[in-house]
Write a protein that binds this DNA or RNA. Sequence first.
DNA 1: GAAAAACCTGACCATATGGTCAATTTTTTA
DNA 2: TAAAAAATTGACCATATGGTCAGGTTTTTC
Lengths: 214, 214
Amino acid sequence: MTAVAPRQREDGRGGGRIRQHQEGAILQAAEQVFARAGFQGATMAEIALRAGLPKSNLHYYFGTKAEVYRAVLGHILRLWLAETDCITPDADPREALEHYIAAKMRLTAERPDASRVFANELLHGAPEIGDYLRGELRTLVADKAQVIEGWIAAGRMAPVDPVHLFISLWALTQTYADFETQVCAVLGRPELAPEDYQRATAHVQALVLRGCGL
Amino acid sequence: MTAVAPRQREDGRGGGRIRQHQEGAILQAAEQVFARAGFQGATMAEIALRAGLPKSNLHYYFGTKAEVYRAVLGHILRLWLAETDCITPDADPREALEHYIAAKMRLTAERPDASRVFANELLHGAPEIGDYLRGELRTLVADKAQVIEGWIAAGRMAPVDPVHLFISLWALTQTYADFETQVCAVLGRPELAPEDYQRATAHVQALVLRGCGL
DNA sequence: GAAAAACCTGACCATATGGTCAATTTTTTA
DNA sequence: TAAAAAATTGACCATATGGTCAGGTTTTTC
């Protein structure tokens, strides 16, 4: 009989010892495969191969490909949140933005595949995470935008549309993961090395801080 | 017998009157479908449907899906080039950058699907256009970077890494097409209206010009 | 106006792939 | 240690989809 796998918590932290381990391996493999091929291009066979288990076993843990995909996205969304912690009314605008950019760039450098899966999902209209974007994310951004409005009103930085500023920050940092191929091409590098990410971070910080009159 | 379709010029300008028309319709339909679903997700059946002809007729003009895809990309690359015309040693840095940003943003607003197909190709490692990126594009960027270096050396703008500046400009503008869903979500819009693009253009121009000390 | 070229199309095929299932083994529980 | 639960797996199936093909129709050419 086909056992119904009782995954308990949506974050995959439930289940026994073996389940923990296998789901972890699957999610890691899936992130790579989805990043490289997108949802449609990814195959369950390849995910299973990379995770080191037969396809039918993969189906024991995740009934459908969409389920694996959702789990990967859930994982990634958790990374995307927070980060904005440093943006508070009392913080120094310069330090806060500098810190935020550095954090986002670090994430980009360390988890480029996560960024790519996210980018791919957005690129195709965010069928899975649209609700999250219009809910949690929008609220978060609205909050932080208020903080920045406050900074501007207090004359602590140049007047900049705060929401568009966030959009710009995301674009400026994630481009180094999402469009790495293009970046490598114009930089004349075979791949991005740590120094490249350092240069990129410094560049974005300089551009944005000066752009915000800081 | 299966006729071998003798497409003459690679840009689809060859062939008879009917061929012209049909290929145009196909390419337009294909751009939409590839933008929404990516290469793997796009189906020949849907492209044919949107172009208003049976699938086998589509195959008469383009032997394989990859061929259609390459034609669409070729179309798009032609848009990507030029644009940088305004960046010359004698130009005013402020005006030149302002103009370049406006042009790129206009392209983004008018041909979002083209931008998305391009983004998708990059996201998956640019298997088709990698050579172009490392060839023509890199040369072009190197040239324009020299111009900007000249501006900086002459004290006409703040010192900014020119190649990273280009990367930033692309990211800042294309994000409004590629990640439109996210942009709409945080802006609280159902879709981007012309005013939104105007605001976005003004924002990016202000941020970058100030960021470049202009 | 007839021959040639270009164009059109329904029926068909091969293959890839997501997903199922029943039987077996391993692990946990009591 | 025995029963129950969880985990594993190879064989199998249904379907979607890229692509073929033979024969028919329209358009162009001379």
